[in-house]
Amino acid sequence: MSVPVLSVRDLSKVYGEGDARVHALRGVSLTVERGDYVAIMGASGSGKSTLMNILGCLDVPSSGRYLIEGTDVGSLDERRLAVLRNRKIGFVFQSFNLIPRMSALANVELPMAYGGVGAAERRARALAALERVGLADRVRHEPNELSGGQQQRVAVARALVTAPSLLLADEPTGNLDTASTRDVLGIFDELNVSGRTIVIITHEDDVAERAKRVVRLVDGRIVDDRRQAPVEGAPPRARTPEVPA
C-alpha cells in the first residue's frame, strides 16, 4: 500500500500546569489512507478538537509523532509548516473563521495568494470553487451579509480551492440547519468521490453514517474504530449515478 496520508503514533496532549493539568489526548494512534473518509465522534471534552488541531498543524502535541505523507511534522520549521498548511491541508472550522470585511471571493482567493498563485488564475479557481459550493451569485458578499450555511460553504470553498490532499473539518455542520447540512455533506461526498481524504468531527449519527470509517474517542483515547465502507469507492450515501441500481 502507498504511504498513508496521515499517521499519528502515540499522540498525547496536556494542557495547563500543576492542579490545572488536563490530559486532552492520552496516546492516540491512527493511520488514514488516501481516499478514506473518517468521522471522529465522542462526547464533549473527549479531545476531538484537540486531535483535529494537531492534525491540521494548528497546534503541536505534547508528545508523539505525526507524519503527513511520510514527512515528520515535528521536524519542520515555521516556514515549511506554513507551506504544508497551505498546500496539503484544507481546514473547515465549526465557527467558519472567515476574515471579516473581505468578500467571499477574496476570502477564497486568500490561500492561493499565500501560495503564490497568479492573480488571474486565482480568481478563476476561486470562482470555480464558489460555483462548486453553489455560491456563484454571492461572490461579492462579505461574511456578515451571508447566512451561516452560506458562510460555511465559503469556508469549504476556501479549504478545497488549493486542492489539498487532506480535508479536515471540525463539526462543519454544528451550526447549520438540515438543508445546509445536506448541502455541505453533499460537497464532502463529491470531494471524497474525486479522491480527497476527509476527516470530519461530528456529534450527529446521520453525519457519521456518511463516512467510510467511524472513530470514537473517550477521554483522549480511541475506544472504537469501525469501517463502514471500503477505502476505495464512493462513500456509503453518495449519489453514484455511474453504478446503476
Binding site: 491540521g56 494548528l58 515555521e78 516556514r79 506554513a82 507551506v83 504544508l84 498548511r85 497551505n86 498546500r87 491541508i89 481546514f91 472550522f93 473563521n97 472567515l98 476574515i99 471579516p100 486568500l110 490561500p111 499565500y114 501560495g115 476556501r158 488549493t162
Partner: peptide, 16 residues
C-alpha cells in the same frame, strides 16, 4: 489576532 490566526491556519507565512 484572530484574523492573524485565520491567515496562519490557511498557510500564511510569518513574513507575509
Amino acid at each position: 489576532t484572530r484574523e492573524i490566526g485565520i491567515r496562519k491556519a490557511i498557510g500564511a507565512p510569518r513574513s507575509a
